[in-house]
Structures are given as structure tokens and as C-alpha cells.
């Protein structure tokens, strides 16, 4: 288990208390999505803060409320943390209105993480759609930074239009250290890559399930269609991982709203293998 426990991170003793952090950089990813870079104001915490790919955080806009975001940066790249925000509700809108230098509150790291230690020596296949790339980006960059531990690292990333693709500034790295396949539902005049949905593209690329792990994240509709594709390629439920999303308030297993059956997404998740999901009642 990860050791936020042994650090000086107050979340272990005061789990509801947000820690002040400053937005150091705001990157506009698409028309409705921004990525925020934040640094803890407390220098000691800034240095010692550590997390694992797949974990999430609660970000506060004081006076408006708190919202759940995955940590989209990789723990290998220290000093600041990143989270990507799609503008949908009151907190996300308030975040979008903020500027560099503004203050937020952060409670992190929360939840479980991708079992990357068990995946050493394997080929990794990332298949993401839209904002679903955010939780996978942490793991992807982590694996690229520990490149020698893994076999092939292939990414299939799709969005509605070219303008909806996030993290374009990292595509080069993803494609040089691994292999990146981009696709959009609707292209434009400049679009040279694939056009079509992620599940269809996956079928076309037909990666081998041998010694491989597939990680997939995206809108529910994409997940619904991609799972059968993985199955027909020969991926077993134990080889497929995703992160689940539920409404959360506390993030620490108390407030009671993120349960799926007897599992709490905030404590037992957000990372689940398909084998684990198959055991859960169909209520997410």
C-alpha cells in the first residue's frame, strides 16, 4: 500500500481538511477542458507529497464546494500535481474562471491505484476516449518514465473532433517512447489520422492479448462498446482495467454515496479490473 501514511500529509489525521495550494499553470486543452497545475503552499509537503497513478483528489474552490478529480500527472514528475477539469457544474465552472496564482484546497491522494508492479515485463495497451485520457495519462507517463520495466506501450486515443483531443503537447513523447494511435469521430481539413470511434479502431489495430494488459477509460458509451472488442481480441477480464466514476463527497469512505454493491469507489476504487467489475451489481 502506498505510503501517504508515513508522510507528513495531514489527510491521514484530518481527512476532511483541504490543504491550501496555488494554481501555478493553467493549460487550455479544449473548448471545455483545462488542465490545472497546482503546488502546495507548504514547502515541506510540496517536497514530500507522493501518490500513485490512478489515485484521485478532492479539489476545493472555497465557498463554492469540492469536486473529485483524478491526479492526471505522474508521480515521477515531482513538485506539482495536475488535474484536468471539464466544465459541467458549479465547482468546475468556478475552476475554469480561476487564474494562475489563485488558491485552491486539495485533499489527496485518495483511492487505490493501478497495480503496475504486477505488470512489469508486460505489454500495455491504453485505450481512452475524451476526458477519459486524464486518469490514464498519470499511468502512461509513469510507465514511460520507467520505460525499461514494460514491453510495448501502445496508446489509442480518440475524441469527438481534433479540437477535443487533450494533452496534444505530449503526443510526441507518447509516440516516440511508445506508439500512439489517434482517432476522431469527425475530422477536419487538417486531420490526417484515423477517423472513427475508439472501439472500431481497436478492432482494426487488433493488438495481441498475449502477455498484455489493457487499460481503458472514457465515456460510458465507449466503455460499453469497447469491452466486447477486447473480448473478441482474446483479452480476459483479468487483463482489462478501468477507473469507475461515482458521485463522491468525502472521498474517504464515510459519506456513503459512491457504493456499488458493497464496494466503495473512493476506497476500493477507482481502479477496478473487469473481473472485479463483473462481480458488482450493475449500478454505475
Amino acid at each position: 500500500m502506498i505510503d501517504s501514511q508515513t508522510t507528513n500529509n495531514p489527510i491521514t489525521t484530518l481527512p476532511y481538511t483541504p490543504i491550501p495550494a496555488t494554481l501555478t499553470k493553467i493549460v487550455t486543452e479544449s473548448w471545455d477542458t483545462k488542465t490545472f497545475h497546482a503546488e502546495f503552499n507548504d514547502e515541506a509537503l510540496k517536497d514530500s507529497f507522493t501518490y500513485e497513478p490512478g489515485q484521485f483528489q478532492q479539489v476545493s474552490v472555497f465557498g463554492v464546494g469540492e469536486c473529485t478529480f483524478c491526479l492526471t500527472s505522474s508521480p515521477t514528475r515531482k513538485g506539482h500535481i495536475e488535474f484536468s477539469v471539464k466544465k459541467v457544474g458549479s465547482v468546475t465552472s468556478a475552476l475554469h474562471d480561476m487564474s494562475e496564482g489563485d488558491l485552491v484546497g486539495i485533499r489527496a491522494p485518495l483511492g487505490n491505484f493501478f497495480p503496475y508492479n504486477e505488470w512489469k515485463g508486460k505489454n500495455l495497451l491504453f485505450a481512452g476516449g475524451g476526458i477519459g485520457m486524464a486518469p490514464m495519462r498519470s499511468l502512461l507517463n509513469f510507465c514511460l518514465d520507467n520505460r525499461d520495466d514494460y514491453g510495448e506501450i501502445t496508446t489509442i486515443y480518440g475524441a469527438r473532433t481534433p479540437g477535443d483531443l487533450c494533452f496534444a503537447y505530449e503526443f510526441e513523447e507518447w509516440n516516440s517512447k511508445g506508439k500512439l494511435h489517434l482517432t476522431v469521430d469527425v475530422g477536419d481539413d487538417d486531420w490526417k489520422d484515423h477517423v472513427g470511434h475508439v472501439p472500431g479502431y481497436l478492432k482494426e489495430l487488433a493488438p495481441s492479448p498475449d502477455n498484455a494488459i489493457a487499460i481503458t477509460c472514457g465515456p460510458p458509451i465507449m466503455i460499453k462498446f469497447i469491452l466486447p472488442e477486447f473480448a473478441s481480441l482474446g483479452f480476459k477480464p483479468e487483463q482489462i482495467y478501468t477507473t469507475l466514476e461515482m458521485k463522491m463527497k468525502c472521498g474517504v469512505g464515510k459519506c456513503g454515496r459512491c457504493n456499488i454493491g458493497s464496494k466503495l469507489v473512493c476506497l476500493d476504487g477507482p481502479v477496478f479490473s473487469l473481473a472485479e467489475i463483473d462481480e458488482l451489481p450493475p449500478e454505475f
Binding site: 476532511y16 476545493s60 472555497f62 463554492v64 469540492e66 468525502c250 459519506c255 456513503g256
Partner: peptide, 10 residues
């Protein structure tokens, strides 16, 4: 039953 909500008030 112990479920709760968290809200901000300014």
C-alpha cells in the same frame, strides 16, 4: 444510517 452531504457556506 450515517450518509451525509458536505456543503460550503460563505
Amino acid at each position: 444510517c450515517s450518509c451525509f452531504d458536505i456543503q460550503d457556506e460563505t
